[in-house]
Computed example of a mutant assay.
Amino acid sequence: MPENTVIDASKTTFGVGITNGGFYHARTVVQASPHIDWVIIDCEHGLTSLNPGVADQVAAIQAEGKPALVRIPATGVSTGTSWQIKYCLDAGAKGVIVPKVATPEKAAEVAADCRFPPVGRRGFGSPYGHMSWNMSFQDYLAKANDHILCIVQIETKEGMENLEKIAAVDGVDVLLLGPADLSMAYGYSIPNPDPHPEVEKMIQRVKDVAHASGKTWRAFHATLLKISDPGSV
Rank of each mutant, 00 (worst) to 15 (best):
residue 1 M to A: 08
residue 2 P to F: 14
residue 2 P to K: 14
residue 3 E to R: 15
residue 5 T to L: 12
residue 5 T to I: 14
residue 6 V to K: 08
residue 7 I to Q: 03
residue 7 I to Y: 11
residue 7 I to G: 02
residue 10 S to M: 08
residue 11 K to H: 15
residue 14 F to N: 11
residue 14 F to L: 11
residue 16 V to L: 10
residue 19 T to Y: 14
residue 19 T to V: 14
residue 20 N to P: 02
residue 20 N to H: 12
residue 22 G to C: 03
residue 22 G to D: 11
residue 23 F to K: 13
residue 24 Y to Q: 15
residue 25 H to I: 14
residue 28 T to Q: 12
residue 30 V to W: 00
residue 30 V to N: 01
residue 31 Q to R: 14
residue 31 Q to K: 15
residue 32 A to M: 09
residue 32 A to N: 10
residue 32 A to V: 03
residue 36 I to A: 03
residue 41 I to R: 03
residue 41 I to W: 00
residue 42 D to G: 01
residue 42 D to Q: 10
residue 44 E to T: 01
residue 47 L to W: 06
residue 47 L to D: 07
residue 54 V to H: 03
residue 54 V to N: 03
residue 56 D to Y: 10
residue 56 D to M: 07
residue 59 A to M: 15
residue 61 I to Q: 05
residue 61 I to Y: 08
residue 61 I to H: 06
residue 62 Q to E: 12
residue 68 A to R: 00
residue 69 L to N: 06
residue 70 V to Y: 05
residue 70 V to P: 10
residue 72 I to P: 09
residue 72 I to S: 00
residue 74 A to S: 15
residue 77 V to N: 09
residue 78 S to K: 13
residue 80 G to R: 12
residue 84 Q to P: 02
residue 85 I to M: 00
residue 85 I to G: 03
residue 87 Y to S: 15
residue 88 C to P: 08
residue 90 D to S: 08
residue 91 A to G: 05
residue 92 G to E: 09
residue 97 I to A: 00
residue 98 V to I: 13
residue 101 V to P: 10
residue 101 V to W: 02
residue 101 V to C: 06
residue 102 A to Y: 13
residue 102 A to W: 06
residue 104 P to D: 09
residue 105 E to K: 08
residue 107 A to W: 12
residue 107 A to E: 02
residue 107 A to I: 03
residue 107 A to N: 07
residue 109 E to P: 00
residue 110 V to C: 07
residue 112 A to L: 11
residue 115 R to H: 13
residue 116 F to W: 08
residue 116 F to C: 02
residue 118 P to L: 13
residue 119 V to W: 04
residue 119 V to K: 09
residue 122 R to C: 07
residue 123 G to Q: 01
residue 124 F to I: 13
residue 125 G to M: 06
residue 125 G to L: 02
residue 126 S to T: 14
residue 126 S to Y: 03
residue 127 P to A: 07
residue 128 Y to D: 01
residue 130 H to A: 11
residue 130 H to S: 10
residue 130 H to R: 02
residue 139 D to A: 12
residue 139 D to W: 04
residue 140 Y to G: 01
residue 141 L to I: 11
residue 142 A to E: 12
residue 143 K to E: 15
residue 147 H to C: 08
residue 149 L to I: 03
residue 150 C to N: 06
residue 150 C to S: 11
residue 150 C to E: 03
residue 154 I to W: 03
residue 155 E to C: 07
residue 157 K to M: 04
residue 161 E to T: 02
residue 163 L to T: 04
residue 163 L to Q: 03
residue 163 L to D: 04
residue 163 L to C: 04
residue 164 E to S: 10
residue 167 A to T: 04
residue 168 A to F: 01
residue 169 V to I: 07
residue 169 V to T: 03
residue 170 D to R: 15
residue 171 G to W: 05
residue 173 D to A: 01
residue 174 V to G: 04
residue 177 L to G: 00
residue 180 A to L: 04
residue 181 D to E: 05
residue 185 A to G: 08
residue 186 Y to C: 09
residue 188 Y to C: 10
residue 190 I to T: 13
residue 190 I to Q: 12
residue 191 P to Q: 05
residue 195 P to H: 02
residue 196 H to W: 09
residue 198 E to I: 00
residue 200 E to L: 15
residue 200 E to Y: 15
residue 203 I to V: 14
residue 204 Q to H: 15
residue 205 R to N: 11
residue 206 V to Y: 02
residue 207 K to C: 01
residue 208 D to M: 10
residue 208 D to W: 01
residue 209 V to H: 06
residue 209 V to T: 04
residue 210 A to G: 14
residue 220 F to P: 00
residue 220 F to M: 11
residue 230 P to A: 07
